[in-house]
């Protein structure tokens, strides 16, 4: 199981970085989504994949018996998914706005804050 997960993580991370290095904003956001998934699967696999019961303590017992799945990585992943979702949604809105303002989704056209700022940036007040 870990083997399969590792390969999937590898594929996801590779495609994520490939996409993030592209110039188009749409591909960058896709890369970010892939990277988020790769990260979540990494946490899932490094925290040991076990076949077992959900970690609910039975009503007449005080501890867990037998093999149970560790709930903490799942909680971590859930948190990471929610946060990732929020940031990705924000990024999409931001990219859309930037696309409208610049008129192009090419990241190479968005370098007016990187070059030597000797002139006012066009499009600013």
């Amino acid at each position: 199981m870990e083997f399969v997960l590792a390969i999937i993580v590898g594929i996801l991370a590779t495609s994520a970085f490939y996409l993030m290095l592209r110039r188009s904003l749409v591909k960058v956001i896709l890369g970010m989504v892939f990277l988020g998934n790769a990260v979540n699967l990494t946490i899932f696999s490094v925290a040991r994949v076990t076949k077992g019961y959900a970690a609910f303590i039975p009503e007449n017992a005080s501890t867990l018996e037998g093999v149970y799945a560790d709930p903490l990585p799942q909680a971590l992943i859930l948190t990471a998914i929610v946060i990732g979702f929020g940031t990705q949604a924000f990024a999409i809105a931001l990219f859309r706005k930037a696309f409208q303002k610049v008129g192009d989704d090419d990241l190479d056209k968005m370098n007016s804050t990187d070059i030597m700022c000797n002139e006012d940036i066009p499009g600013d007040k």
Partner: peptide, 22 residues
């Protein structure tokens, strides 16, 4: 505020910080 330079700066800021968080 959504000025052009702000959005351009924000894109770099967002992408790199999300990478760092990952």
């Amino acid at each position: 505020g959504g000025e052009r330079s702000q959005l351009e700066g924000a894109i770099k800021y967002v992408i790199l910080n999300l990478l760092s968080s990952s």
